[in-house]
């Protein structure tokens, strides 16, 4: 792998960063939603989200000057917010974006930020900002199905190692939904209908899979995925509350330091930033696990 990583083609190295694929995929989803569906997101809201999110990100750099500087994560956060958050005013989106990005600097534990920024931004908005909501039903069957295909394809081909948390979570959560349907004696069409939520898809592939806020060790990630699935299930089917997945990830974030303490492993670092490793495009990049971290760190150095 070091042989690969020594290839100093800057552009190929950039393409190695899986966040670029995420940005591409989310951008397509946003465009498709706006064009084919009434996503009720206004262009001004999108612009303000990005303006506030990216400005906040640059401001935060002054707090942590040594970190590699890239706006890719901030762009993903802003895309997620515009895809999920709805508001009847123009101020909610930029405030939520600023809160999301600054949460990375404000809520830290042992060098890791606690909350996935998009999750934090959404919770912040729906709890504190007037005129905000999330529309889980906005996707529709065809768009959601197409998106599932794209997401799975992306995940499989990238062979991202921290993608394990996406699969684990989906196994737990969809398994729980299936058991419930079996218990209730409902038709299986209900199960497939429940998969049509684009919010579930965004959640599984872009939020819970965030390597920066998930547990470092594989066992920790399994525990985390199970906990998130359990909270989400209870939230939706016991308490009958909305936005179950987002709340579950928000609440379960408090336990990530616990999983990291029980199963210590090296913290994830993004390896983009110019050179890094072409190899990671095919092999792991994005979700490099603990053992690869050493190599990545050396390369980064």
């Amino acid at each position: 792998m070091d042989a690969f990583s020594s290839t100093p083609k800057h552009w190929t190295a950039s393409l190695a960063d899986p966040r670029l694929f995420q940005i591409f995929a989310l951008g397509i989803l946003l465009a498709a939603g706006a064009y084919f569906r009434d996503f009720s997101i206004r262009p001004e809201q999108v612009i303000l989200t990005f303006a506030a999110g990216l400005l906040t990100q640059t401001a935060c750099w002054t707090l942590t000057p040594s970190k590699p500087r890239t706006l890719r994560s901030a762009i993903i956060t802003c895309l997620s917010l515009t895809l999920l958050l709805r508001a009847n005013n123009l101020i909610a989106h930029p405030i939520a974006a600023a809160a999301a990005i600054s949460s990375k600097s404000l809520f830290r534990f042992r060098g890791k930020h606690l909350f996935n920024p998009a999750t934090f931004g959404l919770i912040f908005a729906i709890v504190l900002l007037p005129g905000t909501w999330v529309s889980p039903g906005q996707w529709g069957q065809d768009v959601a199905i197409a998106a599932w295909v794209v997401m799975f394809g992306m995940l499989v081909t990238s062979r991202a190692r921290r993608g394990d948390i996406s699969w684990t979570f989906l196994a737990f959560y969809l398994g729980a939904l299936a058991l419930r349907i079996e218990y209730l004696g409902q038709r299986w069409a209900v199960w497939t209908h429940q998969l049509e939520s684009g919010a579930l898809l965004l959640f599984a592939f872009f939020m819970i899979s965030d390597p920066m806020t998930g547990p470092n060790d594989r066992r920790g990630r399994v525990a985390h995925a199970a906990l998130v699935a359990a909270i989400a299930y209870a939230w939706q089917f016991r308490l009958y509350r909305t936005n179950a997945l987002i709340w579950a990830l928000f609440i379960a974030a408090a336990c990530v330091p616990l999983w990291d303490a029980i199963w210590p492993a090296r913290k994830f670092e993004w390896t983009q930033n110019g050179g890094a490793n072409v190899f990671s495009a095919n092999q792991s990049s994005h979700f490099v696990n603990a053992r690869d971290r050493g190599a990545d760190s050396r390369r980064a150095a």
């Binding site: 709805r86 009847n88 005129g131 909501w133 529309s135 409902q186 069409a189």
Partner: peptide, 17 residues
Amino acid sequence: ADTFPEDLIFQETQDQE
């Protein structure tokens, strides 16, 4: 029956438009 496999579940949004 085919296109609506589940009961209708509602939420009240903050949308006042």
